[in-house]
């Protein structure tokens, strides 16, 4: 395992996209997490996210993981580029000939993904703790730990997403196609979602919007278990938790997304196995 880590280290350390995207990612991350300290003016209306309570325990976990989660694609780019270049430079073939097995190849890429995910998760954890203890209205131990499960959820969300990128990179082998592939997948999921909603609506012709939202939340729907949707469900959009939303009558209800968790874990297993299978079956 140490050997595979050293191998990935050698491959990535001098790789330009690796340096560029790492710098961008962590710069953006820091900027975003401290966004609450800045006043925004929309017309003559000023919003300060800190005053909206984003740094308050326990919802700070929801806010930080959700915001940072939006920018996972920057780390994803490193994974896409570094895996695709193995194929465009024919290095997978050369590595194989030199004596690296398919299993070791997949495993070394998973190690990289694991390190990125762990690093990003720890980063979010520590920055959230720092921000929370500095700016939260209350910092009792109970409140701090109440929704800390967003951190492991964030870890799984990232890991699943990155294994999806690994899978697409191995299938498509060109980074441009991988980006198109991700977009196509997202698009198809949306279409599927809309279609399923339409069918769902037709079952309840006379129902208020509020009730409908609640029904949709609790109902079993296939589109909730597609790869992108199931990972995004791990960390719901926290904007309804802003104080301004509460004042406007928004109601935030949230149950721990066990189904999404199971779905994500199944997807990531599937992506890893399918990646291995493709490496094995294809002629290089």
């Amino acid at each position: 395992m140490i050997r595979l880590l050293q191998l990935e280290w050698l491959k990535n350390l001098s790789y330009k996209p690796f340096k560029i995207f790492s710098v961008i990612y962590f710069t953006v991350l820091i900027a975003l997490l401290f966004i609450g300290l800045v006043d925004f003016s929309i017309g003559n209306f000023t919003i300060n996210l800190k005053e909206q309570g984003i740094y308050n325990f326990p919802q700070i976990w929801n806010f930080t993981t959700w915001i940072v989660g939006l920018f996972k694609i920057f780390l994803g780019c490193i994974i896409i580029f570094s895996i695709c270049q193995e194929f465009t430079n024919r290095m997978f073939k050369q590595n194989t000939i030199d004596g690296l097995s398919r299993k070791e190849f997949i495993f070394s890429k998973l190690l990289t993904i694991l390190i990125f995910t762990t690093f990003s998760t720890l980063f979010v954890l520590f920055v959230s703790l720092y921000l929370g203890y500095n700016y939260s209205e209350k910092t009792s131990f109970n409140l701090v730990t109440q929704e800390i499960y967003f951190i492991p959820n964030y870890f799984i969300k990232l890991f699943t997403f990155f294994t999806l990128l690994m899978f697409l990179s191995i299938v498509l082998r060109k980074s441009m196609f991988v980006f198109l592939g991700i977009f196509a997948l997202w698009f198809l999921e949306q279409v599927f979602n809309v279609l399923e909603m339409k069918v769902f609506y037709s079952n309840y012709p006379n129902i208020s919007n509020q009730e409908l939202v609640e029904k949709v939340q609790n109902e079993f729907m296939w589109s909730k278990f597609l790869p992108l949707e199931s990972t995004s469900g791990l960390i719901p959009n926290p904007m309804m938790r802003l104080q301004i939303a509460e004042m406007l009558g928004g109601k935030f209800s949230f149950q721990y997304p066990t189904f999404n968790l199971v779905a994500s874990l199944l997807w990531t297993t599937l992506f890893i196995l399918a990646s291995y299978w493709i490496l094995k079956k294809r002629d290089w």
Binding site: R3, Q6, L7, L10, K11, S14, Y15, K16, Q85, N89, R90, M91, K93, Q94, N95, I97, D98, G99, L100
Partner: peptide
């Protein structure tokens, strides 16, 4: 083995490329 054309990581030096091969082997 050498197949078809020399395959190496273009952005790495000869030394680092050979380090990778040495690690694998």
């Amino acid at each position: 083995a050498i197949i078809e054309q020399p395959n190496f990581y273009p952005y790495l030096s000869a030394e680092k490329n050979l380090k990778i091969v040495a690690k694998i082997k």
